[in-house]
Design a binder for these strands. Structure first.
Length: 411
DNA sequence: TACATACAC
DNA sequence: TATGGTGTATGTA
């Protein structure tokens, strides 16, 4: 066998994986990866960056080789013992599984790019990215169709998409919007942290909330902001009976952008001609999150996506599922969690990066189900912290509460 | 302790 | 022309 050729081919594939397009991101499905990678590699080959990446790639390959040698030395006896120990631990974890909390992960869609598009209408319908010729922070969905994404140098992005408009970063602006987004969570009885990413813990269900506290008046044009439902409704309480807002209790239509509020299905036939349409949200977690996203959009004219799940790990993954401008919930049952986890690629989980992905792939592990199948082996090849972490993932377990008083804003 | 690596944003 | 800056966690010498 021609081992030289073998090796060089393998390296080529390795480098494509390391430097080629990473399409593990919303809005990047079905791209012509081959064509895109050709352009990327053409722009990067021979650079210092390229040399450095090559070196790092070799280190990772070495690590994998060491691991495989270690694996070859494992006896079936060792494996059996490991299996017993791991399963004992897994049983303990299972015993402690907590499905009683609801974690919400809110994530602004293409945040920086969305802010820039909002503030400069000329950018609408054009492929844009935020950052510089050296480095991009994010891109809009239009640009993603060309393979342009966050963490890509601007000059390469320009080769992929010559019409790309690169807008410089305006951190002050993003900070302001982040604050606004944080405010949007407060009245929903949710505590949470704020910026372009928000994790929040649903503290108390609001079964007892009166409808008025869940009603919002849809903003049209530049009218006053309406992010305080209680207040607004108090002013209008005399109209209550005739206003007859739609109450969609737990199975409402999907919310539409305020641009076409008619689809929110509101009744308008109130005698007093209240100049705004209103909408009332239900009390389920799904409804609370719809309300949050509605509030965010009303306040900032930007859209957010969200994930709802029994723990932070799953909520984060869920928030990506229906991006942009959507949400997804994993119901709080073991079966629902395991079903969701089964075919999920481990790379989708926060904390599994490209190195871990590659190491596990060398062991035949791509999905969470495979991660579970190999649990005994993993306990022999990785540190305790690591295999505990892997086991948590493969059982769909994660943190069920948020520190720091419940609201965390990242960005 | 100090340094390196992995990861997220 | 050009491939970030910062913070956290973990592992190792």
């Amino acid at each position: 066998m021609d081992s030289t050729k073998e090796t060089s081919n393998t390296y080529k594939e390795d480098l494509l994986l390391r430097m080629g397009l990473n399409d593990n991101k919303a809005g990047m499905e079905g791209l012509d990866k081959e064509k895109i990678n050709k352009i990327i590699m053409g722009a990067t080959k021979g650079s210092r960056f390229y040399g450095n990446e090559l070196k790092k790639e070799k280190q990772v390959n070495q690590r994998i080789e060491n691991m495989m040698q270690q694996k070859a030395r494992i006896t079936s006896q060792q494996l059996r013992e490991a299996q017993l120990q791991v399963d004992r631990f897994a049983m303990e974890l299972e015993h402690c599984r907590d499905l009683s909390n609801t974690i919400v992960h809110v994530d602004m869609d293409a945040f920086y790019a969305a802010v820039e598009m909002r503030d400069n209408p000329e950018l609408k319908d054009k492929p844009i990215a935020v950052g510089s010729m050296s480095m991009l922070s994010t891109s809009n969905y239009h640009a993603r169709r060309f393979g342009v994404r966050a963490a890509m140098p601007g000059f390469i992005a320009k080769r992929l998409c010559p019409h790309l408009i690169i807008v410089p970063l305006n951190f002050d602006k993003y900070r302001v919007v982040s604050k606004q987004v944080g405010i949007c969570l407060a009245p929903t009885s949710i505590c949470s942290w704020v910026s372009c990413r928000i994790r929040s813990q649903l503290q108390m269900p609001r079964h007892n909330w009166p409808e008025e506290r869940r009603r919002y008046f849809i903003k049209t044009g530049n009218s006053a902001e309406n992010d305080e439902p209680g207040k607004e409704v108090n002013n209008l309480s005399e109209y209550e009976l005739s206003a007859s807002p739609l109450l969609f209790e737990d199975s409402p239509p999907d919310l539409q952008p305020p641009g076409n509020p008619s689809q929110v299905n509101c009744k308008e036939q109130n005698k007093l001609q209240i100049p705004q349409k209103s909408v009332v949200f239900g009390t389920s977690a799904e409804e609370v999150v719809k309300e949050i996203r509605f509030r965010i959009e009303q306040k900032t004219t930007l859209t957010a996506s969200a994930g709802i799940a029994p723990n932070t790990m799953l909520a984060k993954v869920c928030s990506d599922k229906n991006k942009p401008n959507g949400q997804y919930q994993i119901l709080p049952s073991r079966q629902a969690v395991m079903e969701f986890i089964k075919d999920l690629p481990i790379r989708k989980i926060s904390g599994i990066g490209k190195v871990t992905e590659k190491m596990l792939k060398a062991l035949g592990i791509i999905t969470c189900a495979e991660l579970y199948q190999q649990r005994a082996l993993l306990s022999l090849l990785f540190s305790e912290t690591s295999w505990h972490y892997f086991l948590h993932i493969s059982l769909g377990l994660g943190s069920t509460h948020l520190a720091r008083g419940n609201l965390q804003v990242e960005g």
